[in-house]
Design a protein around this nucleic acid. Structure first.
Lengths: 147, 147
DNA sequence: CTCTTTACTTATCATTTGACAATCAAATCG
DNA sequence: CGATTTGATTGTCAAATGATAAGTAAAGAG
C-alpha cells in the first residue's frame, strides 16, 4: 500500500471530521460562555469527576489559565469543586445542576443533528459504519496509545 | 441498532480524532505565525488557488478578519494574491515559495509522526483501515453533504 | 445609465486567550 | 526533621481573535 497516498487520504479524512464536528456543534454553545469554556465543560461532562490538572493536560492549557477559566465557570454556577479526601491539594470538579442542564441541552442538539445526518442510512450500513469506527478506534486512534 | 449508544460511540470517536490531530500536529506550527494563520495556510495549501471569500467561508471567519490575517501572511511573504481575469473584484491566493517551503516542512513532520503511529500495523490491517476510511467518508462525512 | 449586489479593505474596539512570575499549602523525599 | 515537589491560585501583561461600521471598486440587474 502506498504510504504517501494513504497519508493524504488520512489528512482528508481528519479534515472532514473536523468540518463535520464544526457544523454539527455550531450554535450549541450558550452565549454566556466562551469557546474555551464550552470545551472545558464538554470535557468535564464526559469525564467527571476530574481534577484541575487533568483539565489542564487534556485541554492543553496552563494551570494558571485553567484555574482562571474554572473560576469563571464556578462563578457562573456551571461547575463545582470538591475536596479530594486522599490528597488535600487536589480538587475534584463536577458539573453543577445548571451545568448539567446546559450540557444536556447542548448534547441533545448535537444528537438531533447527528441523527438527522444518518437518517437515510440503512441498518446494514449502520452496522458497517459501526465496524469501521471500531477498526479506526482500535488500530489508529486507540485512546491512550503513546505517540 | 441503538441510536443512543451509536451516538456516544461517535462522539468518542470524533474526540479521539481531535485528540490525535492535536498530538500529531503539535509543534509543527512555525513560531512566526499564529494558530489561525497556520490553519489558513493549511487550507490554502490543499485547495489553492482560493479566493478570500472561500477562505472566509471554510475557516468560519468574517471577511474583514480574513482580509486582515491574509494581509499579515502576505507581509510575511507566505502567500501571494493574483488578480482573477474573469472578475476583477476577486483575487486568487496561493502560497508563495516561502509558504510552500514552510507547509512542506510542516506536512513532512506530520507525515513522519503519522507513519510512526502506524508502523506496527500489518499490510492487511492497513487495507482494513483504508476500507474503514472509505466507509466513513462516503456514508457519514461525505464532503459536501448538506447538514 | 442608475441601482444594487458582490468582493474585498481599512479602521477600531472589546474580549478572549496565552504566557509568566510569584505565592501558598499539602505531600513526599532523603 | 528540612528540602523539594506537586496541585492549585492570583495577578499582570501582551497578543490574538471576533465583531462592527464604513468605505471602495467592479459586476450585474432593471
Amino acid at each position: 500500500m502506498d504510504n504517501k497516498a494513504f497519508f493524504h487520504k488520512f489528512v482528508a479524512f481528519t479534515t472532514a471530521v473536523h468540518q463535520m464536528t464544526h457544523e454539527i456543534t455550531k450554535g450549541v454553545k450558550s452565549d454566556v460562555i466562551t469557546p474555551v469554556q464550552y470545551s472545558i465543560l464538554e470535557y468535564i461532562a464526559v469525564s467527571q469527576p476530574v481534577t484541575l490538572s487533568q483539565i489542564s493536560d487534556c485541554q492543553h492549557m496552563s494551570m494558571p489559565n485553567t484555574s482562571r477559566e474554572l473560576k469563571k465557570l464556578s462563578e457562573k454556577n456551571l461547575c463545582e469543586k470538591f475536596a479530594v479526601a486522599e490528597d488535600r491539594r487536589k480538587q475534584f470538579i463536577r458539573l453543577s445542576k445548571d451545568g448539567e442542564a446546559m450540557m444536556n441541552e447542548a448534547f441533545k442538539h448535537i444528537e438531533t443533528r447527528f441523527l438527522q445526518r444518518i437518517k437515510d442510512v440503512s441498518e446494514e450500513e449502520l452496522e458497517e459504519i459501526d465496524r469501521a469506527l471500531d477498526v479506526l478506534n482500535t488500530k489508529v486512534f486507540h485512546s491512550g496509545k503513546s505517540l
